[in-house]
């Protein structure tokens, strides 16, 4: 991709992706183990749920109480994780950086589990502790990976493996504190599961996804220079320290809110930014918002597959994203 990224091009690409996301939200809400009549459902969605448009009470509830919230959560989670991945990659100059592989998702998972075990009654404690867990894991990986020659891609991934395995054992430890009946649903949740959408967490996840993407996009030009090297960026006038703190905090918020709502959906932050860069170029002013929309699209589709492929039973969406992401990771590793 050799054409220069301009505001015009960014607006066109992002509008096209936004239309695709809306289209996917509507279309995927019709698909599921219970099939809904297309015309009536579309009419009800177009009225924003104010009219039943001839849908039965059950059908209406499936559409508005179960499917749409779940699809919207999928969009928020996908957008959050892809944006976080794209910004980690630019900041750390590493195409392999990804919340799940860096252990950031596991940090958020530990935070969420602590919230569930010790503050189970308070739903707000989940995203807050997930954010704290994500931020601590991020800083731990960053410190571990920094050698005298800076963080090489290999070092960063190794540090991610160390933090991930350490946090996994913490997760096992916390799991033993839970009663046996909850363990199965937790295992599912750990793999990334969108079925547990709640009325409190959904708006939080959406708000954080939107605001986080905006905050990171507004620093995209700095990230463009950081992508070429910290020292170069500094020389050219980037306040490297400030941008680094901003990315760490905002990305941790994005990962924290999505893990609190849906567990660790892996590889989204790797697959989506990679595809975006491949088709639209590396300019973060375009690739960050495009990754957010692309991530939403990716997880909406992946979750639809997860809940329909062996219907009426469901797969955790993380299993689907990992199935696509792991081979891509190996491919990228060979090229770095």
């Amino acid at each position: 991709m050799t054409t220069r990224v301009t505001l015009r091009r960014t607006l066109i690409a992002c509008s096209a992706l936004a239309v695709a996301v809306v289209f996917a939200v509507v279309l995927m809400s019709l698909i599921g183990s219970e099939s809904l009549p297309a015309r009536e459902s579309l009419c009800a969605i177009a009225s924003f749920g104010t009219s039943q448009c001839g849908l039965g009470r059950d059908q209406y509830d499936i559409l508005f109480q179960i499917r749409l919230p779940r699809i919207l959560l999928a969009a928020a989670v996908g957008g959050s994780l892809a944006t976080a991945g794209a910004s980690y990659q630019a900041l750390l100059r590493n195409p392999l950086a990804e919340p799940y592989l860096l252990g950031v998702s596991n940090g958020a998972a530990v935070g969420t589990m602590i919230a569930l075990v010790f503050f189970g009654a308070n739903e707000w404690s989940r995203p807050v502790l997930a954010f704290a867990g994500a931020l601590i894991a991020t800083l731990a990986v960053y410190q571990l990976a920094r050698g005298r020659a800076g963080a090489t891609p290999e070092r960063l991934i190794l540090a991610g493996v160390i933090v991930t395995t350490f946090l996994s054992s913490v997760i096992v430890f916390v799991t033993t504190l839970m009663d046996a009946t909850r363990i199965r649903s937790f295992t599912f949740w750990l793999l990334g599961d969108l079925s547990g959408t709640t009325r409190t967490l959904l708006p939080v996840a959406i708000a954080i996804a939107v605001l986080g993407t905006i905050a990171l996009t507004l620093n995209a030009r700095s990230l463009n220079l950081l992508m070429l090297g910290e020292r170069d960026a500094f020389d050219l006038g980037v306040e490297v320290g400030r941008v680094r703190v901003l990315v760490f905090v905002v990305a941790s918020l994005l990962v924290g809110s999505s893990v609190a709502a849906s567990g660790s959906v892996g590889y989204v932050g790797l697959v989506v930014p990679h595809l975006v860069r491949l088709s639209l170029g590396s300019d973060n002013r375009l690739s960050i918002p495009a990754a957010a929309l692309g991530g939403a699209l990716f997880v909406i589709v992946a979750d639809t597959v997860a809940r329909t492929i062996i219907a009426p039973r469901e797969l955790p969406v993380g299993a689907i994203t990992a199935l696509i992401g792991a081979p891509l990771f190996i491919y990228l590793l060979k090229r770095v």
């Binding site: 630019a90 891609p153 620093n219 030009r221 070429l228 050219l236 980037v238 770095v336």
Partner: peptide, 28 residues
């Protein structure tokens, strides 16, 4: 520094204009 992401020569050189941008982040 070693480049790990594809950038064109023009994009690279335009990086030198960063400090002149009115808006440091999303400026065009």
């Amino acid at each position: 520094a070693e480049l790990r992401f594809p950038v064109t020569v023009l994009e690279f050189v335009l990086g030198g204009r960063f400090a002149w941008a009115g808006n440091a982040g999303w400026g065009w």
